[in-house]
């Protein structure tokens, strides 16, 4: 058994080595296929990064009425803080709002003079709310509006931000759905292209398979070397793709970071190295072996 297994591996390896033309063509096609799938996986990162960045910048503010007391406002703050959907709540008093405004616009003399002339603090105290998930803002606002504290609230800026938030959810959803759909289509196209190439490579093997059968080789002794050949083609293609991506990202990572500040693709690649290697090997070996098996199946039946 072990001897047969060893022989099957040697036969497959020799087939791979002795047909450099067809092996290289199959490896080349698989490199393209693996690169497309790896590219799709890596593309997730900038999309995720952009969505996260936008999400981080989104918050909702709730403005208190002029006559609300400090203690009432702090009670509402505590109630909102208790909600599981809420990540962070910041209470901004009237005075804090005024100082923040002054700090931000101290260079704008006209604005500062107008504020002086007004003689009062025109700002309202507010609550700045950050949700764990932007989809939860609606629930948080509905909770406040339904509560006894609704009478304290002058206005909520959620309704101004709602269309933007919904657009963000829709983009995120579309990107995810497009990614899944594109992966499925790409997977099918990849398999068909690789299958076709491997089948062309095996056309010459038709005669050999028939001879092997005539001299008494069992089906596994015939199939085995083709499986090994598929593994060799898939592994070579995966390693070449890995090298190409690592090399490409090493060269272009600084340009990517310059275009999208904070996006470190090389870091992402290194952190997910094992998973990427696994995806590439699984794609290469999976397509290589299954295409070989399907292609020789009909010769074995003949």
């Amino acid at each position: 058994m072990l001897t047969s297994f060893k022989r099957i591996i040697i036969f497959g390896w020799k087939n791979f080595k002795r047909n450099p033309g067809s092996s290289s063509a199959a490896v080349f096609i698989l490199v393209i296929v693996i690169s497309m799938i790896t590219g799709l996986y890596l593309l997730q990162r900038p999309v995720e990064y952009l969505v996260d960045t936008i999400e981080e910048k989104v918050d909702v503010s709730l403005y208190f009425k002029e006559d609300s007391t400090e203690s009432e406002m702090l009670t509402l703050t505590e109630e909102v803080e208790k909600m599981p959907e809420v990540e962070d709540v910041t209470y901004v008093s009237k005075d804090d709002a005024l100082s923040v405004f002054k700090e931000r616009h101290e260079q704008d003399h006209l604005l500062m003079e107008s504020l002086e002339e007004l003689g009062i603090n025109p700002f309202l105290a507010s609550l700045s709310i950050k949700a764990i998930n932007p989809e939860k803002y609606k629930d948080i606002i509905e909770f406040v509006e339904a509560s006894e504290y609704n009478s304290l609230v002058e206005k909520v800026d959620y309704y101004k931000k709602e269309p933007i938030l919904e657009r963000l959810f829709s983009i995120n959803d579309k990107v995810n759905r497009f990614g899944i759909g594109f992966s499925v289509i790409l997977g099918i196209v990849a398999f068909l292209v690789a299958f076709n190439q491997i089948q062309i490579s095996l056309k010459n093997a038709k005669e050999e398979i028939s001879t092997m059968r005539l001299v008494g080789a069992s089906n596994w002794f015939i199939k085995g070397p083709f499986i090994v050949q598929g593994v060799a083609i898939g592994t070579a293609a995966a390693l070449i793709s890995l090298f190409l991506f690592f090399g490409g990202l090493s060269i272009f990572n600084s340009q990517i970071e310059a275009s999208i500040p904070g996006l470190d693709m090389l870091g992402f690649f290194s952190d997910h190295f094992l998973l990427i290697l696994l995806i590439q090997l699984a794609t290469g070996i999976g397509v290589g072996v299954s295409a070989s098996l399907i292609a020789i199946r009909k010769y074995l039946k003949a």
Binding site: T3, S4, R7, K14, N15, R18, N19, N204, E207, E208, S210, T211, M212, L214, V215, G216, A217, S218, F221
Partner: peptide, 23 residues
């Protein structure tokens, strides 16, 4: 009907190999 990817010696050894004869 020789196996074109195998040498003369490998063609001769092939049947013995599939029969599980020792190296």
């Amino acid at each position: 009907k020789l196996l074109q990817n195998k040498t003369v010696a490998e063609n001769v050894a092939y049947v013995m190999e599939i029969m599980g004869k020792g190296e």
